[in-house]
Write a protein that binds this DNA or RNA. Structure first.
Lengths: 216, 216
DNA sequence: CGCATTGTTGAGAGCTGTCAAACAGCGTGG
DNA sequence: CCACGCTGTTTGACAGCTCTCAACAATGCG
């Protein structure tokens, strides 16, 4: 196979933060795996209202098998590195490799659960709980050492891949409200902040408490 | 194959309104197709807050392939009629019949899109728009003659499969707010109501307008 | 017909949104 | 090196929407 042909089948793509990756209308002709960075999926209304409906982290797919694109925009939240597979070859690979098909199915079901969990956040949580929930989510995904269970006394630190505007768009809030809730968490010692993006959480369990009610 | 063996592989199940169908914890051992009625998927928090995260209509699946159940409760919103397939035989059928697998995949992707669309409703719409959006959704699913496109001047009538409480749980509102918004739509002639459950919409396009901003 | 359940309506409080201004970070250019 | 302006964040004051609490009406059932 020639280099040119190979490049058509699989290629690398870098998208700087803020870049549009999928326009939600036309089939890009490829399906990608995120190598690094965070991708946001969002819906925009005619009057300008915006809602982020999903965040994709490294190892997850961007794009959709079957030619029909998902009806949402995909944008790079941070600088993103993608590995893109030509749609046709991806479909072929799925047909021929049952395991790949199962991986795609498994990830889709996982995304569905995550979306529904977030529906609870959007529909039932207070602004304070929403912000704590988002920070907790980020801690789970971005912690240097994966500490999936919020263990007491475990301090972690990470850099937010989202601006205040993006946090608000994911939480169904305004940037002012997000900022106030962050300040409040800071004032109560639940988190501390360096330069608006670096968050350190002395006690994940305490943050988890704040994400469910208002204890501690 | 004996009747008993067949019954283990596929059987009918009726669930009266309000009945718990899946507890969100243990694998029920089957996957079902809804023959009639509406099933709600919901998440409950320890403090009693409830959020409906999905509605399933006839033709859609309830349950999940792969043994791992979805982490949400499934309840009958109206009287429900299910056709249940033993999980093991369903898995076998998926392995042997590519088409079935594709149908499941297609439905899962569809559910994912619907969930994300609803995230926008929950995060960005006003109470008035939320209620109008729900009525519009019901009109599309329950209209006697499927009028997928909200065409002007088309009057339709349907019976709500949800109580005010359930509407509130799906919309992230309280029952009082739902009731007030319904009254308001009534007062503006967008809908009319008979007996709290039967809704008639003289003009779907007008309802669609109310679901997006507050015109008309 | 009486009762329980469900839905409606009202009054007031509280949370979040809106509008506005101050502040911080950061690259540019003097 | 510092002044400047741009962008993003924080904070404040206030209004408005939705929630809470309460009473009442309507519906359904024994």
């Amino acid at each position: 196979m020639s280099d040119a042909a190979l490049t058509r089948l699989v290629h690398r793509r870098r998208a700087p933060a803020g870049n549009l990756i999928l326009d939600g209308e036309q089939d890009p002709g490829w399906i990608a795996v995120i190598l690094s960075g965070v991708v946001k999926l969002l819906k925009t209304a005619a009057d300008g209202r915006r809602q982020i409906v999903g965040l994709q982290f490294p190892g997850q797919f961007v794009g959709r098998p079957g030619g029909k694109p998902s009806p949402f925009l995909a944008e790079a939240a941070s600088d993103v590195d993608l590995c893109c597979f030509a749609g046709s070859s991806f479909e072929t690979a799925m047909r021929e490799n049952r395991d790949l098909e199962h991986v795609v199915m498994h990830q889709t079901l996982e995304e569905l659960d995550v979306a529904r969990e977030w529906m609870f956040v959007l529909g039932r949580k207070t602004a304070q709980e929403k912000v704590a929930s988002l920070l907790l989510l980020m801690a789970h995904h971005l912690a240097p050492e994966p500490a999936d269970v919020p263990s007491a006394g475990k301090a972690i630190e990470f850099e937010l891949p989202l601006s205040r505007t993006e946090m608000a768009e994911y939480l169904g809030l305004t940037i002012e409200t997000v900022s106030r809730q962050i300040s409040n968490l800071k004032a109560h010692g639940v988190i501390s902040i360096r330069g608006a993006r670096v968050v350190s959480v002395p006690d994940l369990a305490a943050l988890a408490d704040w994400s469910e009610n208002n204890k501690s």
